[in-house]
Design a protein around this nucleic acid. Structure first.
Length: 435
RNA sequence: CGGGGCGUGGCGCAGCCUGGUUAGCGCGCCUGCUUUGGGAGCAGGAAGUCGUGAGUUCGAAUCUCACCGCCCCGACCA
């Protein structure tokens, strides 16, 4: 992509409304624009990142055997009356009425819809287990949206739902999701901590929030300080084996969210206990037969008895992750994208647009990188060098190549990682470094 | 939902208290010249229903009331 063609409205000054770094940077780097309180439009740069994250989530879901579906954003109120949540949910649920005076709502989550689909189609234990996911928009009418896309009212999320014949099997499904989440986040350069979370009426140990430690996080969290230098997960995992040992390893050290933390019973002593802020990027939850009972989602077991299906639901905040990754990875100059989610891999800067030799080398590099499928943003505008460098730093592409008259004379270009040291090498060497 | 704050060219702000010519400033934008390796300089220029609606007044960005929108703290949430 040529910079001159790209719709990327960057701003030099800090927008007054944005408080935390990720929000400021997302506005300054032209990733998003606010359309209403807690509601954002995604511009090309932001949308590219959003799709990268979405794709990682999708690939990881698929690799566990979950299947992608797409449910409606608008749901009928009746389903929620059936589950009993219509009255419980409160004002956060956006309720609307259609022209026939029928009650509808903009889905804040999809347990009811997916349970309805399931009960109408699955009747036998032979069709279990089943795991269905979707990635799309949800709406929760938060009283107070804030922190940009980290706490929006409309948000993009992956949610999935597991169906099992019994509790033991449900645990296997739960473990798959647990491990899958660790892998998913690791691919984005994040190492979240799975924390015990409130498991509601069901109780038990099968509810975890995946939390990224960050000063700007909105929830208070408590964990064994050994978490702070824990090793990242090995990505090589066979989901058909027993995953319990991996889950055990990742739940051995204490970690709990605010509502689950109890100073009386906390097993970690004070010196060892880390108290900080965190961003919740995922939540997995086993809720047994809560909805299957209420909504009559039953299957026949191998004894011929009709039993309610065991369910769990699992969420990843895809749009929130864009902000969360920036919170975890930025510096004074701007965003520092991990390669896996960067909107472009390479920023190519022509320091002297108009200079024949610079143009030639840039064009050659640009086209060969394109052929090699390396996403490159080529800044060929007639701007000063400082403007281009500053903007490249702001948008945080993993690699920068600068081509200027000085280097051209010496037969070199400059390459550097975002935030790293520049290195002068030949254009050919730069090319092979990036492919 | 409780408390607080803010709405003035695209962005950031001043002006309001103490009403009175053509509403300013910085950034950005356009034109020209100069410049050209870390957000350039000079000159010229375009762009504003002062959130909306009532009211007070000879006269309202400025005072009063209502409404709308947005932000912050808290309670709540992926």
């Amino acid at each position: 992509m040529r910079r001159s063609k790209l719709f990327m409205p960057t701003i030099k000054e800090t927008p007054a409304d944005a408080q935390i770094p990720s929000h400021r940077l997302m506005l300054r780097a032209g990733l998003v624009r606010q359309t209403a309180a807690g509601i954002y439009s995604w511009l090309p740069m932001g949308y590219r990142v959003l799709r990268k994250i979405e794709q990682i989530v999708r690939e990881e879901m698929d690799s566990t055997g979950a299947q992608e579906i797409l449910m409606p954003t608008i749901q009928p109120s009746e389903l929620w009356q059936e589950s009993g949540r219509y009255d419980d949910y409160g004002k956060e649920m956006l309720r609307v009425t259609d022209r026939h005076d029928r009650g509808l709502l903009y889905g804040p989550t999809h347990e009811e819809v997916v349970t309805d689909i399931f009960r109408n189609s699955v009747k036998s234990y032979r069709d279990l287990p089943q795991n269905l996911y979707q990635i799309h928009w949800k709406f929760r009418d938060e009283v107070r949206p804030r922190f940009g896309v980290m706490r929006g009212r409309e948000f993009f999320m992956k949610d999935n739902y597991s169906f099992d014949i019994d509790a033991a099997s449900a645990r296997i499904s739960y473990n798959k999701m647990f491990v899958s989440y660790l892998r998913t986040f690791a691919r984005m350069g994040l190492t979240p901590i799975p924390m015990q979370a409130d498991s509601g009426a069901i109780g038990g140990d099968m509810s975890h929030e995946f939390i990224i430690l960050a000063d700007t996080g909105e929830s208070t969290v408590y964990c064994d300080s050994a978490w702070l230098d824990s090793d990242p997960l090995s990505l090589d995992i066979d989901f058909d084996t027993d995953l319990q040992p991996i889950v055990d390893r990742w739940t051995k050290l204490y970690a709990a969210t605010d509502d689950k933390y109890d100073p009386e019973s906390c097993p970690v002593n004070e010196e060892r206990l880390y108290t900080g802020r965190g961003i919740e990027v995922g939540h997995i939850f086993y809720f047994g037969t809560k909805y299957s009972n209420a909504m009559g989602a039953t299957v026949s077991n191998d004894q011929g008895q009709e039993v309610p299906v065991e369910m769990g639901s699992y969420g990843i905040g895809v749009s929130r992750l864009v902000g969360a990754i920036i919170e975890a990875s930025h510096d004074d100059d701007g965003i520092v994208w991990p390669e896996s989610v960067a909107p472009f891999q390479v920023g190519l800067i022509n320091l002297r647009a108009g200079d024949a030799a610079c143009n030639e080398i840039c064009e050659k590099l640009y086209s060969s990188l394109s052929v090699a499928n390396v996403d490159t943003l080529y800044d060929e505008r007639d701007e000063r060098a400082g403007v281009k460098f500053a903007e490249m730093d702001l948008i945080g592409l993993p690699w920068q190549i600068a081509v200027g008259p000085r280097g051209v004379k010496a037969g070199t270009v400059e390459i550097r990682r975002r935030g790293g040291k520049r290195e002068e090498i030949s254009a050919e060497a730069a090319f092979s470094r990036l492919t």
